[in-house]
Design a protein around this nucleic acid. Sequence first.
DNA 1: GGCCGTGCTTTACACAGTGTAAAGTTCGTG
DNA 2: CACGAACTTTACACTGTGTAAAGCACGGCC
Lengths: 194, 194
Amino acid sequence: MSSDATPGTRERILDAVLASLADGREDALNMAAVARRAGVSRQAVYLHFPNRATLGVEAARWLDEREDVRKWSAPVVSATTPEETLDAYADFLGAYNPRIVAVARMAYRLRALPELEDAWQDRLRARRDGARAVASRVADAGRLRAPFTPHTAGDLIAAIGSMLVWDELVQDLGWSTKRYVQHLKATFRATLLT
Amino acid sequence: MSSDATPGTRERILDAVLASLADGREDALNMAAVARRAGVSRQAVYLHFPNRATLGVEAARWLDEREDVRKWSAPVVSATTPEETLDAYADFLGAYNPRIVAVARMAYRLRALPELEDAWQDRLRARRDGARAVASRVADAGRLRAPFTPHTAGDLIAAIGSMLVWDELVQDLGWSTKRYVQHLKATFRATLLT
DNA sequence: GGCCGTGCTTTACACAGTGTAAAGTTCGTG
DNA sequence: CACGAACTTTACACTGTGTAAAGCACGGCC
């Protein structure tokens, strides 16, 4: 359907951006470097993306398609008890955050650009919706502690579980993924559950 | 001692950067714009700061001096019980984060530049030291819950209390400072205390 | 076979922003 | 008055973005 055998130029360019981001390269969004890495001319990049901001946005979308959140978040949906749900959500964050943190960092850096800001807000909104769904299931089981509502509890665990917190704990402070997930579970359970 | 009646050129430049950041201006670190706002020539800026990154770092330091963390964090130090200590820390975050978030955002955006990265790590380290001190006092009172150590608990509340989380909750989601502080208190108490 | 459009390349250019260089101005102080 | 420090003015090299236009290669279609 949507995938050809040989990737088109557009896909090659987006892959080049994501690969550079994954490598932590500073020139990940430098138009000339992207073109070089994708094996096309600099102008070819402009034929597909009118400017750098759009290229960044589309790269983020492309990553979403490639990574498929639903696959990773399936255990959260299929959990039954509030404890299981929160634990599964922490597991999800531990697995998914590393896969998208490079793009998140880029997005945060480019927030200046209005078009990118909108697109990035979309992705954060999707993330918060997931977190609020988690909180709602806790509330439905009658286990959500005061003073939280499903809404505020969702916002809070989305913020605590954000890529930027992950970045600080795992990247800057050297926490292992295991420790990150373990402490997140302890925090979620203690904070939200009666 | 350190303050003259009429601010020198250097101080005028740094104030111009901080004022622009506070206004949310995108050109807050544009050398020409800074010079214009400070009422000096562009070259005068280069006489005091060799490049943009250094200007950013020095602006962050200058803000620290102006804002005086110790003043704001005094109630944390003078608190007696673990509950009071954690509450005071949450109050501190609610009061202090808004004052420095613009600079924090800038720093995160400019992390690319190695010199700035080092300087920014210094500030984060200072912040974590404060958070670890808070956690140590809880531990000294024998109230720190498993699986936390003073070290990991400090890292965690520093990350949860970071400017970026504040940014997401208060700026993006419209939480009031009151709600932010209230939920932070609930989170800290529930998570860390036995 | 000739024609044409699509997608890409090549070359060139305008423009903004950073950082460097050097000569000129102003002013307080010995 | 002479000197030095701080700042201004002017000019320039360089990098990166985005625009423009001409040329090329190839596949489908009459």
